[in-house]
Design a protein around this nucleic acid. Sequence first.
DNA 1: CTTGAATCATTCAAGCTGGAAATATTTGGC
DNA 2: GCCAAATATTTCCAGCTTGAATGATTCAAG
Lengths: 142, 142
Amino acid sequence: MTTPTDPQAIAERQLCGLVNGLAQRIAEHVRERAATLGLTASQATALREMSGPMTMRELAERMSCEPSNTTFVVDKLEKQRLIERHPHPTDRRAKHLVLTPEGTALRGRLLELLHADSPLSGLTPEEQHVLHGLLERAVTSG
Amino acid sequence: MTTPTDPQAIAERQLCGLVNGLAQRIAEHVRERAATLGLTASQATALREMSGPMTMRELAERMSCEPSNTTFVVDKLEKQRLIERHPHPTDRRAKHLVLTPEGTALRGRLLELLHADSPLSGLTPEEQHVLHGLLERAVTSG
DNA sequence: CTTGAATCATTCAAGCTGGAAATATTTGGC
DNA sequence: GCCAAATATTTCCAGCTTGAATGATTCAAG
């Protein structure tokens, strides 16, 4: 058992702060780019994950948020005529989310904006590869 | 300029997802531990950062949030008699935040809880060191 | 000393988020 | 077919967070 003044514990605390800081920087990046298209960050995240028709739950999982939150976000996108809720072909409980032509077009522009000047561009592809491996281990080992 | 279907761009997108996932896992860890002490996650973060007397703005920076949010959180901690707002010794605009004895005691227990079973314990100290370096470079190079 | 810009904290309105409860539907066992 | 459990979505609510506007104070320049 480690104590809070253990050097190893202090290092872990710093590491948590760094992870959080980078996550905030990424979120800020999304927020800025989304704003230029008249979208909020969560709306942009939803649009980004809409690579094809899917259900509310699937979108929630891709956005890593609660389904109730997805209802809220999709409501907003629907009001902007970017997405539509169709009946699901085989499951009447579920909704089949599909982008409108405007939604598809906006998603294209959004993806370009998000990929230009990425917040991770300070790392080389090799570094990104190492980072990827470490993060994957950290996330799945919990 | 990269296009959204560029393999490199796809890798960066995945990486952003992993960073976000780990940040969420860390936040969840804090939330769980804090709950056992009757604190919310943000209250726990504030308490954790209160390593000594400081001003509202300094606490906001340590928590990496807006000052207005710090007002909200400190209000809650003050109602629980864990923290006090004293007049600042040299600047009458500022508040001098100090923990009460109960606050100091609870902070001690909180730090122990947060360090036991850390969400990063799946990585070896060496891996954590590498991760630290990469994250620091990513954060500071933006 | 006095003015104006900057800084500290707070208030307020608005949006985001998660969790519990409710509704509708599907699924599996009998 | 019928019933209970599981699943998909929504609604409601409470808490969190931000950003703009406000009031008080400090600081620097004249």
